[in-house]
């Protein structure tokens, strides 16, 4: 036996004696069956139990609570199976736990971000600022929540991109849940020419709301004076709609306002550009041209 081989054997012997690990125990049919049973039956069983609990709690309460409770059940079960398997293999848990402590400190330093994300994930699940399926806006990203995972939340944007947002970022950042409540307000900014009768404009706008069956009668539609703008008198036309019909109502109301204003002869002005011929005191020369009659 060479020197390296002797060193390896001695190291294995020391490690084995320190942890109690004995590979030969696997050759014993009793131990082998127990380890195999734990791995082959225990692991899938733990997974199945956690899934069943997730479904049950989700049905009874909501998906969020289902996720929390299933994770609280799954990980301890996983730990119990792991410890039992190690114990079957002859591991002495005391030195292992000591080593795990040292390893934990080392891993902790190395995985601060991940741990922070895991803890933030539990905060998110407990606080429930959103649920799976809600539409949220984080920074400049808006989309539907696909999953709330250990490290991140995954959302699907409306142009079908998947965006992964770390849990820690969600806890720190301002987040808007667009679909939390069953009704939403549709804001349509409207500007009319200075010559228009404000009362008439208000009447036409409220009629647009009244004639659309998807616009809620209550909370009642509002026409709010916003100010005298550079080119127009500005209003905010605000109507309420069911969360599901928000986009349809926004489109329908915007189109109908334009159509009614055109029909009623109400002018929607736009910024005008005045062109000067080099001097503010002289007007632009205009030459009138008449077409020849044929």
């Amino acid at each position: 036996m060479g020197v390296p081989a002797m060193l390896t054997a001695a190291l294995q012997q020391n490690t084995a004696s320190a942890t109690g690990f004995d590979l030969s125990r696997l050759l014993d049919p009793g131990h082998f069956l127990r380890v195999a049973g734990l791995l082959v039956i225990g692991l899938p069983l733990a997974y199945a139990v956690s899934r069943w609990i997730r479904r049950y709690v989700a049905r009874a309460y909501n998906q969020q609570k289902g996720l929390i409770v299933s994770k609280l059940v799954y990980y301890p079960l996983l730990g119990i199976i792991l410890v039992t398997v190690l114990s079957e293999l002859g591991f002495k848990l005391a030195p292992l736990l000591g080593a795990a402590g040292i390893l934990g400190v080392a891993l902790g330093f190395a995985s601060q971000t991940s741990v922070s994300n895991i803890i933030s994930g539990f905060f998110l699940l407990a606080e429930e600022p959103f649920q799976v399926g809600d539409v949220i806006t984080v920074n400049d990203v808006t989309g539907a929540v696909l999953t709330i995972d250990m490290l991140s939340v995954k959302i699907r944007t409306f142009d079908n991109k998947m965006v992964r947002i770390p849990n820690e970022a969600l806890v720190k950042t301002q987040l808007t849940n667009v679909t939390r409540f069953p009704i939403r307000r549709v804001d349509v900014p409207v500007g009319v020419a200075y010559k228009e009768d404000i009362g008439r404009v208000r009447g036409v706008l409220l009629k647009v709301a009244e004639d659309n069956p998807n616009v809620l009668m209550e909370p009642e539609p509002l026409v709010i004076f916003q100010g005298y703008g550079a080119s127009s008198i500005d209003f905010l036309f605000a109507v309420w709609a069911k969360r599901e019909s928000w986009l349809a109502v926004k489109n329908a109301v915007t189109e109908e306002v334009k159509r009614r204003f055109d029909a009623e002869g109400i002018e929607i002005p736009f910024p005008h550009l005045s062109i000067y011929a080099g001097s503010v005191t002289e007007s632009l020369p205009i030459r009138l041209v008449r077409e020849k009659k044929t």
């Binding site: 009704i183 009244e210 069956p213 998807n214 616009v215 809620l216 009668m217 209550e218 069911k242």
Partner: peptide
């Protein structure tokens, strides 16, 4: 004759209705 939608109750705990 289609009736307009409306909301009955508070913003958080109301229900959809027809007007």
């Amino acid at each position: 004759t289609p009736l307009s939608d409306t909301w009955w109750g508070g913003f958080l705990d109301g229900e959809m209705a027809y007007w």
